[in-house]
Structure formats: structure tokens, C-alpha cells
Lab assay of single mutants.
Amino acid sequence: KNAAKIVNEALNQGITLFVSDNKLKYKTNRDSIPSELLEEWKQHKQELIDFLTQLES
């Protein structure tokens, strides 16, 4: 999976991924984040940080 797909899947579940101080963060109104999503974010962390940083610049 690529970073764009992961970010879109998160958005579809009401979760916004973003970068703050070079760290991957998220915002959501959900009570909890599915563990498989958290695991996927960890596996692709640097790719996600790079992707989101490019989007914001």
C-alpha cells in the first residue's frame, strides 16, 4: 500500500493524519483506532511523514 491510499482509508474512517514536529499524528472523533490501522501506520511511518509533509508544503 502506498501513503496516499493509507491516508485516504484513514479519512474514510473519520481519521485525519498529519505531521507535527516531524512526528505522525492523528485527529479523530472516534473512541478508538483499530489496531490494524495503527500497525499499518507504524509500518509505513516514514513514507506517511514524507507524503504528508510534501502535501503541506
Results as ranks from 00 to 15, higher is better:
V19Y: 05
E36V: 09
S20V: 15
L48A: 00
T53D: 05
F51H: 06
Y26K: 01
P34R: 04
E56N: 15
E9F: 06
E39F: 07
E56M: 12
Q13C: 08
L38F: 10
K27S: 11
S20D: 13
L11S: 08
E9K: 08
I6T: 02
L48W: 00
F18L: 06
V7R: 03
S32D: 10
S35A: 15
S35D: 12
E39V: 08
E9T: 08
I33R: 02
Q13D: 04
K45N: 13
Y26A: 05
T53C: 07
E40Q: 15
G14D: 05
K5L: 15
I6R: 03
I49Y: 05
F51Q: 02
D31I: 09
A3V: 10
G14C: 05
V7N: 04
T16I: 14
D21K: 06
I15M: 03
A4V: 07
A3S: 05
Y26E: 01
L55P: 10
L11C: 07
L48S: 00
K27R: 12
L17D: 00
L52N: 00
W41M: 07
T53L: 14
L52M: 03
Q46H: 09
A3K: 01
I33H: 02
Q43D: 07
Y26R: 01
N8M: 15
L38G: 03
V7W: 08
E40L: 13
S20N: 08
N29P: 06
E9W: 05
N22F: 07
T28P: 10
E56S: 14
K5T: 14
P34W: 02
V19D: 00
Q13H: 12
F51V: 02
T16G: 03
W41F: 09
V19H: 03
D21P: 01
N2F: 08
V19T: 05
F18C: 05
E47A: 13
F18V: 05
I15R: 00
E36F: 11
S20H: 13
S20F: 11
S32N: 14
A3H: 02
L48K: 00
E47P: 05
L48G: 00
W41Y: 04
D21A: 07
F18W: 06
L48M: 03
Q13R: 08
Q13I: 10
R30T: 06
N12V: 13
I15G: 01
L55K: 14
L55W: 12
E39L: 11
E40W: 05
K27N: 08
K42Y: 15
E36N: 11
R30D: 05
T53E: 07
P34H: 04
S57D: 12
S35F: 12
K42Q: 14
T28Y: 05
N2T: 14
E36L: 07
L48C: 01
K23M: 13
N29V: 10
F18T: 04
L55D: 09
Q46D: 14
I6Q: 02
K1M: 09
L37W: 07
E9G: 04
T28R: 02
E47Q: 09
E56F: 07
T53P: 02
A10F: 03
D31K: 03
N8P: 01
S57H: 14
L55R: 13
F18P: 01
V19Q: 03
E36I: 11
E56T: 12
S32Y: 13
D31W: 04
K1Q: 09
N29L: 13
L38P: 03
F51I: 03
I6A: 02
N12L: 14
K23N: 10
I15D: 00
A10Y: 02
E9S: 06
S20E: 15
K23A: 10
R30W: 06
I6E: 00
F51K: 01
W41A: 03
T16K: 10
K45Q: 15
E47D: 09
S32K: 12
Q43F: 11
T53H: 07
N22E: 06
Q43W: 07
T16H: 14
L55A: 11
L52A: 01
L17P: 01
S20R: 10
I15W: 02
L37T: 05
Q54C: 09
D21I: 03
L48N: 00
L38D: 02
